[in-house]
Simulated assay, not measured.
Amino acid sequence: MTHSTAASASDGLLEALHASGPVAQHADKLKLFGQFIGSWDADWSGTGVAGTPVRMTGELDFGWVLGGRAVQDVWIVPGRGEIGEGRPPLAFHGSTIRFYDPSIDAWRSTWIEPVNGRVRRFIGRPVDNEIILLSTEDEPQLRWRFTAITPRSFRWRAETSHDAGVTWTFDEEMLFSRT
């Protein structure tokens, strides 16, 4: 394959995947995750392998995809070029595809993260001033929350339940600021 052929194939994927905005149908519902379109700096905090607190920085990028019917994001912690990038178990480099499903009046969301071999499906809904995503198909159950949402920042928090959602334990959180 020549360089120009490779560039054309890459451009074709980008052209087919990315969209300039939401599709008109369900545009109001699509704003739930559409409000995050753009690039964000991340400040991650969680627990390390030894059980001690750990902090890292990273990045997050959101965009419209699939004809404006979905939102895709890419999460990279530590960020590109930073120490520890792509090294498990704390590092992650993954993507989520999210779309509004009118049959359940909620968002279907699938997280794919090859560094640690993870795939999880979530159902997301707005609850008060937050967005709550629940993954109940596998154990442990996961709850991801977008909170304190403003046009320039938001907080993302991950929690785990080992008792079918009766109690939740903090796993990690990220503070985001728009770049």
Rank of each mutant, 00 (worst) to 15 (best):
N116K: 04
N116Y: 04
N116E: 01
G117T: 07
G117S: 11
V119A: 03
R120H: 07
R120W: 09
R120V: 07
R120I: 03
R120N: 12
R121Y: 02
R121H: 12
F122P: 12
F122M: 12
F122Q: 10
F122D: 13
I123W: 04
G124I: 06
R125L: 11
R125S: 06
P126R: 15
P126W: 00
P126F: 00
P126C: 10
V127E: 12
V127S: 09
D128P: 04
D128M: 08
D128C: 08
N129Y: 03
E130R: 10
E130M: 11
E130F: 00
I131M: 11
I131C: 11
I131Q: 04
I131G: 07
I131V: 15
I132Y: 03
L133Q: 10
L133V: 02
L134Y: 07
L134G: 05
S135P: 09
T136E: 15
E139M: 01
E139T: 09
P140H: 08
P140E: 05
P140D: 05
P140K: 09
Q141T: 02
Q141N: 08
Q141M: 13
Q141G: 03
Q141H: 14
L142S: 13
L142W: 05
R143L: 06
R143D: 11
W144M: 08
R145N: 00
R145A: 06
R145K: 13
F146V: 01
T147F: 02
